[in-house]
């Protein structure tokens, strides 16, 4: 099995062409090791979302190289034939709002990605319930998303991001709608899950409360990243 983690080298993204061209990413370098949670912070318009979309294989970078585990997935074009399968099987997503599917109960929200990957329903649900147990929301397994609190919804969303055991999780402002206590709980869960499943997690955030918890932080400004050591404080 390939080693996990993600490495990005010289990633560029240009929108438009000619005089109206905008360089959103101007050569981003970053790497995240398996089991590590890093922060990606920067002001609005700095290129955070573009970087996240490039990593999530929903937009095409203009240049650079991306390596997932020991497989090059992008270098002068995508090297994987099916980006949908790449997103489904090897990249997990956690959004600012949980964006749970409102007409599926908690279990099926989490079980949906493995079902889409072809896992039998019973096995997918078993895997979902294991994760819900790990995230302490097993007791809400039959509830509909509208019946959950904000913190519970976010934990279910994290479970959905983890359920296919992807090597990378991209978390876009996962604590934005939560109060300090719940935000800290979510970061603790992400760290626990990163360690437990050897997952590399990139957390895009503006949240001052959680920034001190990262051991490594990437600052992005004008499409360029700068790495710095974080405080790596506890989660209390």
């Amino acid at each position: 099995m390939a080693t996990k983690g993600i490495r990005i080298e010289g990633l560029r993204k240009r929108y438009g062409s000619g005089d109206t061209a905008v360089d959103a990413l101007k050569g981003v370098d970053m790497h995240v090791e398996p089991g590590e949670v890093v922060g990606l912070i920067g002001p609005s318009g700095s290129g955070k979302s573009t970087l996240l979309k490039s990593l999530g294989a929903v937009i095409d970078p203009t240049a650079g190289r991306m390596t997932l585990g020991d497989e090059v997935i992008y270098e002068q074009g995508w090297k994987v034939p099916d980006l949908r399968a790449l997103r489904r099987d090897r990249i997990g997503f956690v959004f600012q709002a949980p964006y749970l599917i409102p007409f599926l109960d908690v279990t099926d929200n989490v079980a949906l990605p493995p079902m889409l990957a072809g896992l039998p329903n019973t096995e997918a649900r078993k895997r979902a319930q294991d994760l819900l147990t790990a995230l302490d929301v097993r007791h809400r397994a039959q509830a509909m998303p509208s019946q959950l609190s904000g913190g519970e919804q976010q934990r279910v969303a994290i479970a959905r991001g983890l359920v296919n055991r992807p090597p990378v999780i991209l978390a876009d402002e996962p604590t934005a709608p939560l109060d300090s206590q719940r935000a800290m709980a979510v970061i603790r869960i992400l760290n626990d899950m990163a360690r437990k499943y050897e997952t590399a997690i990139i957390v895009v955030t503006h949240d001052e409360k959680i920034i001190p918890t990262f051991k490594r932080i990437y600052h992005i400004r004008d499409g360029v990243t700068h790495e710095e050591a974080g405080e790596g404080r506890g989660f209390e």
Partner: peptide, 16 residues
């Protein structure tokens, strides 16, 4: 629309 975007992001096929 948002749910459909999420479904597509997590790998749902267009035909589904």
């Amino acid at each position: 629309i948002r749910e459909i975007a999420v479904l597509k992001l997590i790998g749902t096929r267009n035909r589904t």
